[in-house]
Design a protein around this nucleic acid. Sequence first.
DNA 1: TTCATGTGTAATATATTTATTACACATATA
DNA 2: TATATGTGTAATAAATATATTACACATGAA
Lengths: 112, 112
Amino acid sequence: MNLTGNELLQVFEALANPHRMRIVSSLREGRKYVSELAREVRMSRPLLYMHLHRMEIAGLVSARLELSDDGKAKKYYELTEFELLLTPDAISDAVRTLTDKNAAETSTLEEE
Amino acid sequence: MNLTGNELLQVFEALANPHRMRIVSSLREGRKYVSELAREVRMSRPLLYMHLHRMEIAGLVSARLELSDDGKAKKYYELTEFELLLTPDAISDAVRTLTDKNAAETSTLEEE
DNA sequence: TTCATGTGTAATATATTTATTACACATATA
DNA sequence: TATATGTGTAATAAATATATTACACATGAA
């Protein structure tokens, strides 16, 4: 798994929160839908959404909306299997591809 | 290296910032004193202090105040050699020792 | 004495993250 | 129809993190 500086930063940001660490732990048992997970980690659904979005952007989890037998739509979140070795060297390498701003645009033009 | 949940969280928090990632990268070249490092990473000294403190608490760096030949006191910061494998399992394990608050007190009494 | 170089911190402003509240909409069942 | 269960989001409040400014104090050299 070779991440750019910005990607690695997003992973750190995604993990730098106790709730999100617990979410990782909970999802390790298997995929769960949002309301289900919200009950488990004792969190309001809107708040959980926010946390899941951050984790999704970082690539830690992925989502999939399904229609269950009882007709309810359920959004299942699943854990990404990741494995990265964290060392000063690994971070230094990543820093070389770390841009100042997490600029949204993938523009060809680089600003001063 | 076996960290508790709270310790691991602090490491994530310490790394979840582009400046601090750059500091790790810079210190990998060798120890540096604060003003020197501030010039390298182009940051004001008070701000750098703040970042270094966070990293120090997380155990990523260590400091040592020395008296240099020219009589100036210089505070040298050095990188800790760390190596941790980041996987869902590792995080889950750590979560078991993750307390709700980063409570300062190491009290025997546990609050409800 | 003044200047350039260090350390150290308090007070404050700004920005970002985290959390809550209040909605809208859908399906199945009592 | 009312209730319980889902999804999804906008607006706002509260808490933290980040950044700046302004200090005090010290040493050596010009």
